[in-house]
Structures are given as structure tokens and as C-alpha cells.
Write a protein that binds this DNA or RNA. Structure first.
Lengths: 332, 332
DNA sequence: CTGAAAGCGCTAACAA
DNA sequence: TTGTTAGCGCTTTCAG
């Protein structure tokens, strides 16, 4: 353990332990003089308040768990990195957990999650809210992208997929495309239903026709496999929309390398997420963008509102998406 | 706070608080009967020991900080995810922190890192060991890939870059290549010097000639930029080696799309890391593989040895790399 | 094997 | 503004 504690600092500074505590916490009034003595002594001893004891005494926690599934997709991994950094810089302690989306995941969580949490940020499809709630005594967990669940016990950040997907469909129409394939994500995910529904809604208002569709699992290989199946059933449409960029890349590579199709001339491929690779010239993949920064801001806003005491009210934020009609290599 | 504590459980179970503690911790003897009563009562109340209080009382910590820089590269992001999962499953609490590699990073760390750590796993080039050591009262931090620093206060996991790079050079020779360009990573990183040194060493033993070299920053764009500069200076070599895959991909895309070169026919491009994208047919990038699983195992071994009491001894593990001579699209 | 009691380091009334 | 005091929830001697 840290051998240096507030008591030693207090002795060296010639003040009481509470003075030390007050100097660091900012709560309660301390004279500038006392404060200076405390900091000098702390510096000398290398003292830093022990968060364990502090949290315990304050009956609160700064720990925010970031919970995602055990097969996080490409953008999720980066998102967690970014979110964790943002939380840390906002003075919280980000705890990163990957759990399986089943009972064993819930088991793991309750077995190893020893610390009371300020809150948890839970990725859609990683684990059910009811397993997380008991660990969050101070504020409800924040669910991400659970677009079609209506849990009243949680706060939520949702993605406005209708907007971006609508923009894409409009773009396809305005560029004279008539027919479409769709490759959905894992069927058990909430992104599956919400993206599919948003697409169907947009198509219903357009002249585009959905010729066929398939299901993947958000990974590259599933994009190639789904495309194979669609291709066997033919005929080729004007465009294909994939529920994320990674599958779209699998589709592009198969279309180009295995079947010699020109993308986007013979087949216009669209993804979702707009990961950095999508702007690389090899792919130059049109995509529907969701910005990590927007989502992170929404989360921070919820945390702030909770800190200010939102009471029993459920907080919910909506983050926009937008279509990025990237069509040719950026070299030229 | 959790309203349910050991005291309530004890009352319900009709035993003492120490009995509850013992039942959960496994330390100290408890009769099967008492234990059963305790667990029954805990179940009923939804009790789980509070890690904050437990850690405080035990004078130890299960928290392992994973510290990386604020511009983590592609594979690092995935590595952190994987490591975090492995630690969690091993019963530790992974705390993920990104700090800048400068004084402000050290400042941030000491300002916000409130919890005593069991240890920290520190990526090369994220922050200096001396800033982390004060936070690790129980075991020295574990430094990753600080191949050329000789800090006696830390444990270390190093990468045997000589092996994989040697294999690559041998492969180039055996396939009749004579000349080479090299794009290094950020000059301030330890990977910069260690990879460059490994390359020079391998070249010294071969007939390959290093025609020219450039410096990037491990990101895609820096690969394209470095290639541009090399290309201006010409003439083209038989092969180009990049200090990571991402830069190699930038090189490939530029070579193909801007200069119409055939890869690998006109120019053989090699990367380092073997990220998943490298096996995609678009790139089919030969690369030098470092396996996350190997590194994670090394870390867990160090943790185990420390737990068993390694004393003042400094622990160090070496993880191998190997060349993956991927040369053509896997579709065919 | 069990319970009582003394901490772990810090915070938050409260009284001075 | 300060110091004193009583906890926060758990672990761990130490008697019994």
C-alpha cells in the first residue's frame, strides 16, 4: 500500500488530517496558508489521496464501466478507446469490460465486477441492462443504440439511422439507380432490426426496389460470404447496402477480385460507420457516418445532467448520422 | 452506495460479519453449514462484497492500468481490447488510460489516477516508467517493447524483431530481390530504433542493398507521403519494407492508384504487425507477425510470477515475431 | 470454527 | 477556518 497517508502529511505540515482532506478535495474552506503547507508536505512525501478510501468514505464512485461484447466490431474498438480517454480526462475512471452476450457473460460480470460503479456505458447487444443495473447504485446505466428496446430503468444514447439511410436512398435515386441488395448485420443485434427498418422505411418512400437481402455478422468474411450467396441467386442490382463498412469491404473485394466487377461502375457499394479505412483510395467507400465525438458528447451530457440530479427522469439523447457519398479514389 | 452490506447479510444468516467475509474471501476456515447460510442470505439480499472496502482493508489492489499513448496505432487498439479482456477473465480489474507522451501526460496520470494499482502495463512510447512507478506500490510496472531501454525498476515484455525481420530479408534474397527502401516509424518511438536496427543487422548479413529510407508516423497517410518522397528521388527498388502495416497500405495504394505500379510484381511491399486487414485480398500484404496472444501470455506469466513473489528480481519475457510471406490474393 | 474488535485511509458533520 | 469524531464496508488478528 501507499505507505504515505494523510496522517503523515498532516503531521509534517503541522495541521489536522481533515485539513489535508479539504485541501485536496476542494470541499470545505481552507485558508491559502494551510493549503500551501499541506501541498508542500505532500510534495515532499509524494502523497496522493487514496481513491479507494476516498470513494468508500464519500459513498460514491468515479468508476465508469465500458461494457461491450466479446466480439466488438471494428469501429467499436476505436470508440471504446476514445470514450475511455474522454472519461478519464473528465475525471472519471474508465473500466473496460468485454463480456459475452449470454448468461455466462452476466455471470462473469457479477463475479468479477467488484467495484460500485458511478455508471456503466453498455454497448447494444453486449449484455442486458438488468444485469448491469445492480452494479450501478448511483445512476442508471447508459445503453448505446438499443434503439428498439424500451427499458425504463436506463438512460440511452440512440442513433438516428433513419436520417443517414434516408439520405443514401435519396442519393441512389437521384443518380438513377433502381435496384438494391441489402446485407444486414447479426440478426440478434439491435442494429440488425433498426438498420433494416430504417432502410425499409426509406425504400417505401422511394422508387428503389429491394431485390434480395442476406444476413452477415458485421465481419469482413461474412460480407464476402453473403455476397456470394446473393450473386448465386442473381441478377445483379445497381447498388448494394451493407449494415457496416467491414462487410462492405468484403463485398467489394469479392466483387472485384473474384467476379471482376467494377466498383462503383458495375455495382455501387455502400457501407455504414464510415471507419477511417473507408476513405482510403482502394475502397473509397460511400458510407453512413456516425461520429464517435457526437456519441461521446451525448454520454458526457447525460453524466453531467445526472450529477446535477436528474432524479427519476430517464435521459435519452439522439445522435445524427449522415450519408457520405464518397465515390472515387481521392488520388487522381 | 450498495445498501446491502456484510452486516445485513450476517444478521439475516444469523452469523457474524467475519463469517460473511470469510465465506466470500476463501481465507480462513468456515464450516460448510455457515457458508451455506451466508450464501443463501446473500442471494436473497443481492449482496456482493464491495471491492473498494475490500481492497482498502486488504491493503492490496486488483486494478491493472493499461496505459497507452494518445495516438494508439491500429493494432494497439485491438491489443488493448484483448488484453483487457484477458485480465478481466483472470480476475483483475483493467483500467484503460491514454496519456500523452509528454509532461502533461504525466501530469494527467498523477492527477486522475486515484487508485493504487496492482501493476500497470505500459505501451512503449506512452509514458516514462518513472511516472508510473509511484502508482504501483505492489509490483513494478510492465513495460512493453521498450527494447532498448534498460530500466532496472520495471518488468518487461520485449519483441524479438530480429527474428521476423531476418526471415523477411532471407525471403527477399531467395526470391531474387536485390534492392530495398525502408519507411521507419515515428523517430521518437522505441519501435523506430529497434526495427531499424534489426533491419540493418539483417541487411548487413545479406546481399540486399538499402537504396533509400524515409520516416513516417505509423499512420496510413504518412505511408503515402513517405512513398511520394522516395518516389521523387527514385529509382524504384525491388521491395519496400514499412515499419507497420498501415503505412504499407498507404504505400500500396499510392503505388497502384497514383503511379500505376503493380504490387507485388513491380514493387514488393512488406509491412509489420500482420493486422487482420493484411490478409484481405485487396492488400494481401506480406508482413511480420506479432501475436497478441503471445504478448498477453507473457504478461499473465509475469503477473503470476509476481504474485508468487519474485522479490527484487526483474522479470523479462521475449516474444517472437515471424515473417508471413503472403503474396497473392486468397481468392483465385 | 466462530465472534469481537481494531484497523485500512479518507470524508463529513459538528463543535470550537 | 480549524480540529475532533464518527463512520464508509471489509479483513484480520486474537480470544474463546
Amino acid at each position: 500500500m501507499q505507505k504515505v497517508n494523510a496522517k503523515k502529511v498532516a503531521e509534517l505540515a503541522g495541521v489536522s488530517r481533515s485539513a489535508v482532506s479539504r485541501s485536496f478535495s476542494g470541499n470545505g474552506r481552507v485558508s491559502a496558508e494551510t493549503r500551501a503547507k499541506v501541498f508542500a508536505a505532500s510534495e515532499q512525501l509524494g502523497y496522493r489521496p487514496n481513491g479507494l478510501a476516498s470513494s468508500l468514505a464519500r459513498q460514491t464512485s468515479d468508476i465508469v464501466a465500458l461494457i461491450n461484447g466479446d466480439a466488438p466490431d471494428f469501429r467499436e474498438v476505436f470508440f471504446v478507446q476514445n470514450l475511455s480517454r474522454a472519461l478519464f480526462n473528465a475525471g472519471m475512471t474508465p473500466l473496460m469490460l468485454s463480456v459475452r452476450n449470454d448468461d455466462s457473460g452476466a455471470e462473469t460480470l457479477s463475479q468479477f465486477l467488484r467495484f460500485p460503479l458511478l455508471t456503466a456505458v453498455v454497448s447494444a447487444d453486449s449484455i442486458e441492462a438488468r444485469h448491469v443495473i445492480p452494479h450501478c447504485p448511483y445512476a442508471p446505466p447508459i445503453m448505446l443504440n438499443e434503439n428498439y428496446s424500451r427499458d425504463d430503468e436506463v438512460d440511452a444514447v440512440r442513433l438516428d439511422e433513419v436520417k443517414g439511410i434516408g439520405e443514401m436512398v435519396a442519393h441512389l435515386e437521384s443518380t438513377g439507380r433502381k435496384t438494391l441488395w441489402f446485407i444486414a448485420g447479426r440478426q440478434t443485434t439491435s442494429a440488425y432490426s433498426s438498420r433494416k427498418m430504417a432502410l425499409l422505411e426509406a425504400l417505401a418512400r422511394s422508387d428503389l426496389r429491394l431485390l434480395d437481402s442476406e444476413v452477415g455478422d458485421f465481419f469482413y468474411d461474412s460480407g464476402t460470404a453473403a455476397f456470394e450467396r446473393l450473386y448465386q441467386r442473381g441478377p445483379l442490382p445497381d447498388a448494394i447496402f451493407c449494415a457496416n463498412d467491414l462487410m462492405a469491404m468484403g463485398v467489394m473485394d469479392t466483387a472485384r477480385f473474384k467476379y471482376g466487377l467494377r466498383v462503383p461502375e458495375d455495382l455501387y457499394v455502400v457501407g455504414f460507420d464510415d471507419i477511417p479505412q473507408s476513405s482510403w483510395p482502394t475502397y473509397a467507400l460511400p458510407s453512413i457516418q456516425q461520429r464517435d465525438a457526437d456519441i461521446i458528447n451525448a454520454i458526457l451530457e447525460i453524466l453531467t445532467e445526472r450529477k446535477e440530479g436528474a432524479g427519476d427522469q430517464r435521459l435519452s439523447k439522439m445522435v445524427p448520422t449522415r450519408f457520405v457519398p464518397r465515390t472515387k479514389a481521392e488520388f487522381a
